[in-house]
Simulated assay, not measured.
Amino acid sequence: MTTPPTASDTMKSIGIVQEGAPVLAEPTCPFELPREAAEAREIVTALHAAADRAATVHTFSKGMGVAAPQVGIGRRVAIVRPAEGDAITLLNPVVVEESSDTDEQFEGCLSFFDVRGKVPRPRTLQVRHQNFDGQWQTSIFTDGLARLVAHEVDHLDGVLYVARMPPGTHTITVTEYKGTGQKWQYGGSQQG
């Protein structure tokens, strides 16, 4: 009798680099923009292709993101696809300010998708990032979107969400997590 593939096995089979790979534990290399814009565009295309593949094997009701290390590339770029709205490209992102107002929610990661962990994150995040022409801009993200962006910026710094979990806490299996029935909630609204 064959054991069915785990969620992590499935992600690996669609090209998502899994926990333990050195590229996930190393800070990424920023782009020199606009000089490296063509390379940056190619990687962004690869990230969207990976997100498309992931979306065929799992429903991401809260949104999702993919960082370059998760497709084996050590460059400072990630994409975030919110539950609603347009995809966000983060080229050379740097968190410049985060709110002291935080909350704790469960997160998952495509690079070890068999578990979920409760992670404290700032409710508001201010991020400086570039466009392909090299122009800098600052974006402010709140609540669920701030959580998604923070998770991806962590990937670009070689940090996995389990390192952000409070001491003494641990991940739970997807089966246990599904049993909680909890969605991300912020001040009476639901991020779903």
Rank of each mutant, 00 (worst) to 15 (best):
E84M: 04
R116P: 06
S8W: 12
A7N: 08
K12H: 13
T169Y: 10
W184L: 14
H58M: 13
L110Q: 13
Q191V: 15
K178R: 15
F112W: 08
P122V: 12
Y177G: 01
G134W: 05
H48N: 05
T175K: 12
E104P: 03
G158P: 05
S13G: 14
S61Y: 14
E39G: 03
T175G: 08
E39W: 06
A38G: 10
V95R: 04
D157N: 14
G192Y: 10
L24E: 00
K12E: 13
Q185A: 12
T180H: 03
A7M: 11
A46P: 00
P30D: 04
Y177P: 01
A40D: 00
G168C: 08
L47M: 01
Q137K: 10
A21F: 06
D154I: 05
E104W: 11
L148M: 04
G158D: 08
L148Q: 01
G15H: 10
E107S: 01
D52N: 06
V96R: 14
A37W: 11
V153G: 07
I88C: 00
A50F: 13
A146T: 08
A51G: 06
V119E: 02
V77E: 02
Q135P: 02
G134Q: 03
G192M: 07
L145G: 10
L24Y: 05
H58K: 11
E39Y: 10
D133A: 15
A25H: 13
E36G: 07
Y177S: 04
L148F: 05
L90Q: 06
T89A: 03
K62H: 15
G168M: 09
T124E: 10
P34T: 04
E107P: 02
M11S: 00
E39A: 14
H58V: 07
K62E: 06
E42C: 01
A78K: 00
S99L: 07
I140W: 14
E152F: 13
D9G: 01
Q185C: 05
P34G: 03
V162C: 04
G74L: 04
L33N: 08
S13V: 05
I14D: 06
V95E: 00
Q18H: 07
L91T: 09
